Simulated scan of single mutants.
Amino acid sequence: MAKNYLNIILFTLFISSLCCYAQEVKVFTVKDFDLKDSVKTCLVSTKYGKEEYNFNKKGLLTKSVTRYSDSDYDVVLYKYANGELLEKRSETYRDNKFDPSTSIAHFFELDTTSNRKVIEKIISYDKEFLDNYIYHYDDKGDLVRMIRTNNEGTDETLVEYKKYKGEYTVTYLLNEVPLKSIRTSNRKKNGAVQKIVLTKEFLKGEPNKAIEEVFDVNELLLERQEFDYNVTEKKFVPTVRTTYNYDKNGMLESEIIADGNSTEKKEYIYQFDGEEGGNWIKKIIKPDNAYTTRKITYYKAESEKKEEE
Results as ranks from 00 to 15, higher is better:
residue 2 A to S: 10
residue 4 N to M: 13
residue 6 L to I: 12
residue 7 N to W: 10
residue 7 N to H: 13
residue 8 I to L: 11
residue 10 L to K: 09
residue 11 F to H: 08
residue 12 T to D: 15
residue 14 F to L: 08
residue 15 I to S: 10
residue 16 S to F: 02
residue 21 Y to N: 15
residue 24 E to G: 14
residue 26 K to A: 11
residue 29 T to Y: 04
residue 33 F to K: 08
residue 34 D to R: 07
residue 36 K to R: 14
residue 36 K to C: 04
residue 38 S to I: 01
residue 38 S to F: 00
residue 45 S to D: 13
residue 47 K to D: 15
residue 52 E to M: 07
residue 55 F to L: 08
residue 56 N to Y: 05
residue 56 N to A: 01
residue 56 N to T: 06
residue 57 K to V: 06
residue 59 G to H: 07
residue 61 L to Y: 03
residue 62 T to Y: 05
residue 62 T to C: 03
residue 64 S to I: 11
residue 66 T to N: 10
residue 67 R to E: 15
residue 68 Y to G: 12
residue 73 Y to M: 01
residue 77 L to R: 02
residue 81 A to F: 04
residue 81 A to G: 09
residue 83 G to K: 04
residue 85 L to P: 00
residue 87 E to S: 13
residue 88 K to D: 04
residue 89 R to Q: 15
residue 90 S to R: 06
residue 94 R to F: 00
residue 97 K to H: 13
residue 98 F to W: 14
residue 98 F to E: 07
residue 103 S to F: 03
residue 104 I to Q: 04
residue 106 H to T: 02
residue 110 L to G: 05
residue 111 D to V: 01
residue 112 T to Y: 09
residue 112 T to V: 08
residue 116 R to L: 03
residue 119 I to A: 11
residue 119 I to G: 13
residue 123 I to E: 13
residue 125 Y to E: 14
residue 134 I to E: 15
residue 135 Y to V: 09
residue 136 H to P: 02
residue 139 D to R: 05
residue 140 K to T: 15
residue 142 D to Y: 08
residue 144 V to Q: 07
residue 149 T to C: 03
residue 152 E to H: 11
residue 158 L to I: 13
residue 159 V to K: 00
residue 164 Y to H: 10
residue 169 T to E: 12
residue 171 T to L: 07
residue 174 L to P: 01
residue 175 N to P: 08
residue 178 P to V: 07
residue 178 P to N: 14
residue 181 S to K: 05
residue 183 R to Q: 15
residue 183 R to Y: 00
residue 184 T to K: 14
residue 184 T to I: 14
residue 189 K to I: 02
residue 192 A to T: 14
residue 194 Q to K: 14
residue 195 K to P: 00
residue 196 I to A: 03
residue 197 V to H: 00
residue 198 L to M: 07
residue 200 K to N: 14
residue 201 E to V: 07
residue 204 K to H: 10
residue 206 E to Y: 07
residue 208 N to R: 09
residue 211 I to C: 09
residue 211 I to R: 09
residue 213 E to K: 13
residue 215 F to E: 06
residue 215 F to N: 10
residue 218 N to W: 00
residue 218 N to V: 00
residue 220 L to A: 00
residue 220 L to S: 01
residue 223 E to I: 12
residue 225 Q to C: 04
residue 227 F to M: 08
residue 227 F to V: 09
residue 228 D to V: 08
residue 235 K to G: 13
residue 235 K to Q: 12
residue 238 P to T: 09
residue 239 T to F: 03
residue 241 R to T: 07
residue 248 K to C: 01
residue 249 N to F: 05
residue 249 N to K: 14
residue 254 S to G: 10
residue 255 E to K: 13
residue 255 E to N: 13
residue 264 E to N: 08
residue 267 E to G: 12
residue 267 E to S: 15
residue 269 I to A: 06
residue 269 I to N: 11
residue 274 G to P: 06
residue 274 G to S: 13
residue 276 E to A: 12
residue 277 G to W: 01
residue 280 W to S: 10
residue 286 K to W: 01
residue 287 P to Y: 03
residue 287 P to M: 07
residue 289 N to W: 09
residue 292 T to W: 04
residue 293 T to P: 04
residue 295 K to I: 11
residue 297 T to N: 09
residue 300 K to I: 07
residue 300 K to G: 03
residue 305 K to I: 00
residue 305 K to C: 01
residue 308 E to Y: 03
residue 308 E to L: 02
residue 309 E to I: 06
